[in-house]
Computed example of a mutant assay.
Amino acid sequence: MFLLLLLLMVACRNSGNKASEKGNGESDQYRMAVEVVLEDEADMNRLLSQFAEIKLEKYAWKNHVVLFGDKSDTAGIGEIIRTSDIPYEIKWYLHPFYIFDKLSCCADTTVSSSWNDYILTANLVEDTVLQNEYMAYHKTQFTKWPEVAQGFCHAGFQQLLVFRSGRQLLLVISVPSDKTLDELDPKTVENNPRMVEWNNLMSRYQEGIEGTSDDETWVFLDKVSTEKDLKR
């Protein structure tokens, strides 16, 4: 049993560090995201109508829209960006620097056939030394902080991806479709003080993006099914 767990931890380490150790071209099997930051939130519905034919899932928070999914579903995005008359900034999140997969990280390798994806975003603090420390912690997390992956396994997370564009982080947490993140997230710290320590340590490297309140760090983007969902 010990040998089996050891082998699983090695597999998890290799999977989790693939993007950061081997470079951008090695993580193509994972999904990607595109973020659109509007100058004027009033353009949100018009923007979504322009992206209506793009198969990627859409998520929104204030003037931010994130399109997330398989890279094969990104066809047409470049042309929309080129021809759109809406003022906005584009950020690409093509390769996660941190990858947790239940299949390669957990003793129970049963993967749900259907997932719910939760997308959150935050900034790294504006200090390059601290930013480098944050990235270094994630590069060695599977070996030096194995309790973090154990917490994700205990919670039943299917996948967790972290992307970066400049200072901004994009976090994607995938759970079984018959569960919610509110239901599963507390399980990550059950009987796991090391996971609590990790969360407290990481908080010193993170802050909210523009538009958040003083007490906000990570914000959730809401999934958008139709234009009606955006009318608040």
Rank of each mutant, 00 (worst) to 15 (best):
F2S: 05
F2Y: 11
V10Q: 13
R13A: 12
R13D: 12
N14S: 11
S15F: 02
G25K: 13
E26K: 11
Q29N: 09
Q29C: 03
V36C: 09
L38S: 12
D43A: 05
A52L: 06
I54F: 08
Y59D: 10
A60K: 09
W61D: 07
K62D: 12
N63P: 01
V65I: 08
D70A: 08
K71A: 10
S72A: 15
T74G: 03
T74Y: 11
A75Q: 08
G76A: 02
G76C: 04
G78A: 14
E79I: 05
E79A: 11
I81H: 07
T83K: 15
S84Q: 06
I86V: 08
Y88T: 00
Y98S: 14
L103C: 06
C105I: 04
C105G: 09
A107L: 07
T109P: 00
V111P: 04
S112Q: 07
D117F: 01
D117L: 00
T121Y: 05
A122P: 07
L124V: 01
L124R: 04
D127A: 01
V129H: 03
N132A: 12
N132P: 00
Y134N: 05
F142D: 13
K144F: 14
Q150K: 13
C153S: 09
H154I: 05
G156A: 07
L160F: 09
S165A: 14
G166P: 02
Q168K: 15
L169M: 13
I173P: 03
I173R: 12
S174Y: 07
V175F: 07
D178L: 02
T180R: 11
D185M: 08
P186F: 09
N192M: 11
P193G: 10
R194S: 10
M195D: 13
M195Q: 15
W198L: 06
N199K: 13
M202A: 14
I209A: 03
E210A: 11
G211V: 02
G211P: 01
G211Y: 03
W218T: 04
W218Y: 09
W218D: 01
S225M: 02
T226F: 02
R232L: 03
